[in-house]
């Protein structure tokens, strides 16, 4: 019997490894039964509502090796369980990669940022309320989508890349990291994978039940940001219904290399319009070598939403996304 509101933690094993090896061994042993916990902001709702029922939680926040921000040969490395507050306030991130500092500072609310981790923000599950309610929809392994229908509540859903599931990427830091050309460091007990941020996220056409390419035995341990885009010109903007404690209706993260008013190179990424952060490569190539101008911004905005397939209640995301691209390019 499905009760509508359990709202209490079930019995569950809690593992609190303090070193990497232990954590990876646990992830390997427990597989899909082991739920990784960072700050827990994406965890406790699922578990208290009993809509996800893993056998155990593996808490990662006591592993010092996966915490903190350090300089590496080419750029910086941020441990996956570094809190969003720490990232937003970090002088190194602020000075070189202000895009990420701004994005991290726009996540949810101060309370959530104080415990929420970068890793958690990146691999958090879809926020579609039908899915979060525990309905057996496509994303939950079922055979139906309740949001993509004539009467479905889909104001906050996808413009692009929908394939049965129309949920969007909810993260604010993900577009920033794609725009910074970051690399995800993914470890398991047997190997380490380095995955470009852009390829880390996966849409429903390829995997309808996961948001990332992480396998059950793998843990995102760190994010490396290369110096390629350090100190570039950045633009981040998040438009949400509320200014605190909300997910983006559309967000945008962009990095520009500008010389004499001319855009030499750019990476522009929108969140909340597709299941993955949407990199606007056609826009990037169209503006490369162009002088920044109102006209260029406007035409880039138009270009950004080509191929958008709005649902019944999210048409507004088209002009909103166009406007954000326009604002980013306008600078």
């Amino acid at each position: 019997m499905v009760a509508t509101s359990h709202d209490v933690m079930p019995d569950i094993e809690l593992y609190q490894p303090t070193d990497e090896e232990n954590a990876l061994a646990l992830a390997n042993t427990l597989g899909a039964d082991g739920w990784l916990v960072g700050g827990g902001q994406d965890t406790y709702g699922w578990l208290k509502d009993r809509n996800k029922n893993p056998a155990a939680m593996i808490e990662l926040t006591q592993i010092d090796a996966w915490k903190g921000i350090k300089e590496i040969a080419d750029g910086i490395e941020i441990g996956a369980v570094t809190t969003l507050t720490d990232i937003a306030n970090n002088p190194l991130v602020q000075s070189r990669y202000a895009l990420l500092a701004t994005a991290a500072g726009k996540v949810a609310s101060p309370q959530i940022r104080n415990v929420g981790t970068l890793g958690g923000n990146l691999i958090q599950d879809a926020r579609c309320w039908y899915y979060r309610r525990g309905l057996d929809c496509y994303r939950a392994g079922g055979n139906i989508c309740y949001a993509d229908s004539p009467e479905g509540l889909n104001r906050e859903h996808a413009l692009f890349g929908a394939s049965r599931c129309v949920a969007v990427s909810p993260s604010d830091t993900a577009p920033a990291l794609v725009a910074l050309d970051a690399t995800m460091v993914v470890a398991s007990s047997s190997r380490e994978r380095l995955i470009p941020a852009q390829d880390f996220f996966v849409g429903p056409e390829r995997d309808i039940v996961n948001m990332t390419v992480l396998n059950d035995d793998e843990i995102l341990t760190a994010v490396r940001i290369p110096s390629t885009w350090a100190n570039a010109e950045f633009y981040f903007e998040k438009v949400a219904d509320r200014n605190v404690w909300d997910f983006a209706l559309v967000n945008i993260a962009a990095s520009f290399k500008v010389s004499g008013g001319s855009i030499e190179d750019a990476r522009i990424v929108c969140g909340a319009v597709e299941c993955t952060p949407r990199r606007l490569e056609s826009v990037e190539s169209a503006i490369r070598g162009q002088q920044r101008s109102e006209e260029l911004a406007a035409s880039a905005g138009e270009m950004a939403t080509e191929g958008a397939r709005p649902l019944n209640y999210n048409h507004f995301k088209v002009p909103l996304m166009q406007n954000l691209v326009k604002r980013a390019i306008r600078g």
């Binding site: 104001r155 438009v239 219904d241 209706l249 019944n312 209640y313 999210n314 048409h315 507004f316 088209v318 002009p319 909103l320 406007n323």
Partner: peptide
């Protein structure tokens, strides 16, 4: 709400 204002300005009436 935000979406209503954006729609109004963009001339989108469907929603």
């Amino acid at each position: 709400t935000t979406d209503m204002i954006v729609n109004h300005i963009a001339g989108i009436s469907e929603e």
